[in-house]
Design a protein around this nucleic acid. Structure first.
Lengths: 333, 333
DNA sequence: CGTGCATTTGCACAGCTGTGCAACAGGCTG
DNA sequence: CAGCCTGTTGCACAGCTGTGCAAATGCACG
């Protein structure tokens, strides 16, 4: 902004009223006469005036800004969640500051400091884990914090999770019910709590059924990891006939390893289950059976908690949303 | 932000200096004694102080904010571009305000007004087309405007395009060189300038070669549109044996229609070319031959123009970036 | 020691907005 | 007509920061 903006003072001059009248005309609930209001609105329209939210944010209890802290924003699940979050924020009269991080906790800390610098009303953390002292600084200064699918809870924050353990259990049960005899887990080595819980649930169900499973773990949550894991698992002598992949990207990679590299038929020779229900899971080349991340509910819950006046700020809260199994063509029924 | 923030005044008190010394310690190029600086930094660290960028933005020529105005943020190409843009912005010390629009010009106008309200240094428009009076208001007030792959130019803005016409021409040439005799164009009805230019280039090359082409146009730029168009085109008596799809999503849909619905072999019976080089184009189930949107160059050019001090603000500028053809397995060579 | 120059420091003001409060105007009722 | 109540209005102040400028300080040199 290289030049001086149109300000309320200019509008006041053109409309022949005080600067305070202009302010009141743009402040919900403030008192201003109808005729005065009309003159002010006409002047503002003519000059292209918009209230300066920076200045307003200096005075009032909120800036309208919400930091969205995320890594890998271009992956299908993450971008769908960001789309849903920004829609919900805008519907609530807020606007998202997108801070792209590299997954490290230090990167998240830097992002939170930026949020503080802009006095954002809240921060929604989709990647990484801020340390306690920093979250305490945020809370002490009135910023609301929402953590989506993060490792640990932090006092005063809302943590939203999905039922990863339940999904892992269901995945095992579905593969067992489909008659799979050699069941495997293909997981990323990223080690996030969500991935771990999916694996935990899967292992629990297998142990309860008295069945041994094969586990393979490597790389990030990507398609390439799935190619590698799928090639490795399906080249074994004791080749699995049922595989739960902890993300859809991994599952698509496993499927491509099975079909294009090893000429296996899905689900005839090997069943595959994924997790996320990204758009590509529904494409006919994959028709992947998976669990749907409740993206819309995650966004609604996160943003809803920010505008819910009844919420007690210093109260730690946790919400776990259910996931829904989406049956398609990669598993026998 | 419900409570009073730590401010420079608190830091000054703890460090035993004036508030102005604190300000200077955080202003690049300002003069402050080494020992004073150390005391200020220690106090700031202890109190968790971050400069208030809102207040700073009220005083200085810039807020550090850049509006990113986009629709369909969850699609592969758009999300990749947003990821690249946010990275470049952060490297340049700026931060993106993500405004999710619905593609309509009215929605973009509303987004730009929000950008004005936050006195953003710039706006990068990825979807929709703002009207002239509004862009003039922005420019008059010092905001920089960058339009990426938009329809029309606007005085004082930078327009960045890619060589869509060249790509369309190359697509036809590649299909002709592959021996395709019945060549078709599968396009979205969205009608954006980029889509139109790809079609224009394709038609030009066909006309020059004296070859008639078949055109099918429908729906948004989605996978489902590709399924529908592919099913329609490939069910005809005069079935095409080479199809240029104006986006990769359409191409993936056309490929799935060909293989899973009509049992055609690619590229033996029908060649397919897409546009964008989304991640899924490289997946082994598709191995799509396509043109790569230079996402990193788009982002670098856009953000570079914002920080390029030599650029003349009132000068209309246009940059066209080349696209690179990516050969994979959907066309014979 | 005095002078000149560079560095440092704090005061006062400005940027733009919202708000508390006093003064005023208008309408209604006793 | 006077008093009361409601709505309207503008003043003065505050929020937090950067900056111009004058005063103070420190250092080097003759």
């Amino acid at each position: 902004m290289g030049k001086r903006q149109v300000s309320a003072r200019d509008v006041a001059q053109l409309a022949g009223v005080s600067r305070t009248a202009v302010s009141r005309a743009f402040t919900p609930g403030a008192s201003v006469a109808k005729e005065t209001r009309a003159r002010i609105e006409a002047a503002a329209e003519q000059l292209g005036y918009q209230v300066n939210h920076l200045a307003r944010g200096l005075i009032t209890a909120n800036t309208g800004l919400v930091a969205l802290i995320a890594a890998e924003v271009q992956t299908p699940y993450r971008s769908a969640l960001l789309a849903a979050l920004t829609e919900q924020l805008q519907a609530a009269g807020k606007i998202g500051l997108l801070i792209n991080t590299d997954r490290s906790d230090a990167s998240v800390a830097q992002a939170l400091k930026q949020a503080i610098a802009y006095r954002t009303d809240a921060a929604i953390v989709l990647s990484g884990m801020p340390d306690s002292s920093l979250t305490e600084t945020c809370l002490r200064n009135g910023m609301q914090l929402v953590l989506i699918n993060r490792d640990d809870e932090r006092a005063g924050t809302l943590m939203i999770r999905v039922d990863d353990i339940g999904a892992g259990r269901q995945a095992f049960a579905a593969l067992a019910a489909a008659g799979c005899r050699h069941i495997a887990l293909a997981n990323s080595a990223a080690g996030t709590a969500s991935l771990q819980d999916r694996a935990i649930g899967f292992r629990q169900a297998a142990a309860e059924a008295g069945q041994k499973i094969t586990e393979a773990e490597a790389g990030p949550t990507s398609y390439q990891t799935g190619l590698d894991l799928g090639t490795g698992l399906l080249s074994r002598k004791d080749r699995p006939d049922g595989i739960f992949c902890t993300t859809d990207l991994i599952a698509c990679g496993v499927m491509d390893a099975a079909r294009t590299r090893l000429r296996l038929k899905i689900p005839d020779e090997v069943s595959v289950i994924g997790f996320d229900d990204i758009e590509q899971a529904g494409w006919e080349s994959y028709a992947l059976t998976t669990f749907r991340q409740p993206v819309e509910d995650l966004a609604r819950t996160a943003v809803g908690s920010l505008v819910d006046l009844a919420r007690e700020h210093n109260l730690q809260a946790r919400k776990t949303l259910p996931v829904q199994m989406i049956w398609r063509g990669t598993i026998r029924r």
